[in-house]
Computed example of a mutant assay.
Amino acid sequence: MDLKEIASKQILDSIQTKKDVLDTLLPEIVQAGQIASKVLENGNMILFCGNGGSSCDASHIAAELVVRYKSGNERRALPAISLSSDSAVLTACSNDYGYEEVFSRQVQAFGKPGDLLIGLSTSGNSKNVISATEAAKKLGMKTISFLGGDGGKLKGMADLDIIIPRKETARIQESHILIGHILCSIIEQELFQLS
């Protein structure tokens, strides 16, 4: 296979994945946007977590909310945080309690009833995202999972699952960031009438 074929195949796979997301997950995506909007409208906060590339996606989406999603959409900052961002907390918790607790410990510190946890896990089997979801539910937080494949062990744990119907990590992550951007668009429309 030549390099153009490799590139072309990935682009076509990505397009097909997004078509499948459009055909099968639109109601869940809109529902996630409405949940997140209501949480923020009520004065609560959104916490994000994920590992590896999903960690970066969690930080990316949180930044879009704190700063702004679309250039020119001037609005107040929204309370969102990525639990993957503080290296001191991550390393201290890993050392003292184990990596499985790095997000749940922060949920216990920052979360409160009415807040929202969005956990990203391409496999659905990330033990630290599972622990964070359990901790959030104990606190009375709302929970949404961005997953892939068959949803793994996280499937059914959160209030709402958005499961990308693919096994390839790259396609799942591309779709998760697209859905994160849609979430930001819905929030800006619902809270500020900014499109």
Results as ranks from 00 to 15, higher is better:
Ala88Ile: 07
Glu190Thr: 13
Lys155Thr: 11
Arg75Ile: 03
Gly119Asp: 01
Asp57Phe: 00
Lys167Met: 10
Ile163Gly: 00
Ser82Met: 04
Lys19Ala: 10
Ala62Cys: 10
Gly98Met: 08
Met1Ser: 09
Tyr69His: 07
Asp159Met: 15
Asn128Asp: 12
Ala80Phe: 03
Gln106Thr: 05
Leu90His: 09
Phe48Thr: 01
Ser8Thr: 09
Asp161Asn: 15
Tyr97Ile: 13
Thr133Lys: 09
Gln34Trp: 03
Thr91Asp: 06
Gln31Lys: 08
Gly140Ile: 13
Ser14Arg: 12
Gly152Pro: 00
Ile11Met: 15
Ser14Gln: 12
Thr143Ser: 13
Ser195Trp: 08
Glu190Ile: 08
Asp57Cys: 11
Gln106Met: 12
Tyr97Leu: 14
Ser55Thr: 14
Ala63Glu: 06
Arg68Glu: 09
Ala77Cys: 13
Glu174Asp: 14
Gly52Cys: 10
Asn42Cys: 13
Ile186His: 01
Gly151Asp: 09
Gly111Ala: 11
Asp115Trp: 00
Lys19Phe: 06
Asn51Gly: 02
Gly152Phe: 08
Glu28Ile: 07
Ala158Asp: 05
Gln173Cys: 05
Arg68Gln: 13
Val107Gly: 03
Ser104Gly: 04
Gln16Val: 05
Ser121Glu: 01
Glu74Leu: 10
Asn95Asp: 14
Gly50Leu: 05
Gln193His: 13
Glu28Lys: 05
Gly72His: 14
Val102Asn: 01
Ile61Pro: 01
Ala32Ile: 02
Ile6Ser: 10
Gly111Val: 07
Ser145Arg: 04
Ile15Phe: 12
